[in-house]
């Protein structure tokens, strides 16, 4: 078996700092927040993706990996060792889904969207993208946004605006998205509404 790379150098403070980055990003959708404490995760898992996973995932949260991450055994072994999270085969069973190939993400409604009584029992999707300064601008409004926020992300599913609109229409149900690229994170919680540019 291949050698496992380490987790956070300081698990307590690094998880706290990473959580605050994710919380800031979620509270202000469209804002790109740097992730300082990153880890050397097995490729294709990027540094920020791995840091977010170590911060939020544990034995209580089933994780689904997209085909690109599940292609080799390294990512699964690394996640199992550092988080103890059970890995599941069906997207619907996952509390967290980690995707390294967001352009070919399954439809969001294949993941758990929660129920009207318990909308919090829904999946969080960690979409690992390549950059936050490229791609078609997503213009957003909603809680956490003063007026309009613009976020550029590449790559994304080609029908991303339609997906976000459909996800918002399910509110209070729906999936929450955390986007990671390199050493930064952004978030698109279910409360965001894409604004159609005319």
């Amino acid at each position: 078996m291949a050698t496992l790379t380490a987790g956070f150098a300081d698990p307590v403070l690094a998880a706290q700092a990473t959580f605050r980055a994710v919380m800031d990003a979620t509270a202000r959708p469209g804002t790109v927040v740097p992730v300082i404490d990153t880890v050397a995760a097995p490729p294709p898992l990027a540094a920020a993706t791995a840091a977010v996973a170590l911060t939020l995932v544990d034995g209580d949260t089933p994780v689904w990996l997209d085909p690109r991450l599940a292609a080799g055994p390294e990512v699964a072994a690394w996640l199992r060792f550092h988080t103890g999270a059970p890995l599941v085969d069906r997207p619907a069973d996952a509390a967290f889904a980690i995707l390294a190939d967001p352009a070919s993400a399954p439809p969001f409604e294949h993941f758990s969207i929660g129920t009207l009584d318990d909308p919090d029992r829904s999946a969080t999707l960690i979409l690992q993208v390549e950059r936050f300064d490229d791609g078609a601008p997503l213009v957003l409004s909603g809680p956490g946004i003063a007026d309009r926020a613009t976020l550029r992300v590449a790559p994304l599913p080609p029908d991303m605006v339609a997906r976000l609109t459909a996800n918002r229409a399910l509110f209070p149900r729906g999936v929450d998205l955390i986007l990671t690229a390199g050493h930064a994170v952004a978030a698109l919680p279910r409360s965001v509404m894409p604004v159609m540019e005319r």
Binding site: P11, Q16, M23, A27, P119, P172, P189
Partner: peptide, 27 residues
């Protein structure tokens, strides 16, 4: 005890709840 008293697994559970709470304002 751990930094800020709570153990890490408890903090992760609370942090996940906080993120869901922010995503569903008022719920």
């Amino acid at each position: 005890y751990n930094f800020a008293y709570l153990d890490e697994q408890t903090k992760r559970m609370i942090r996940r709840a906080i993120l869901k709470a922010i995503a569903i304002p008022g719920y």
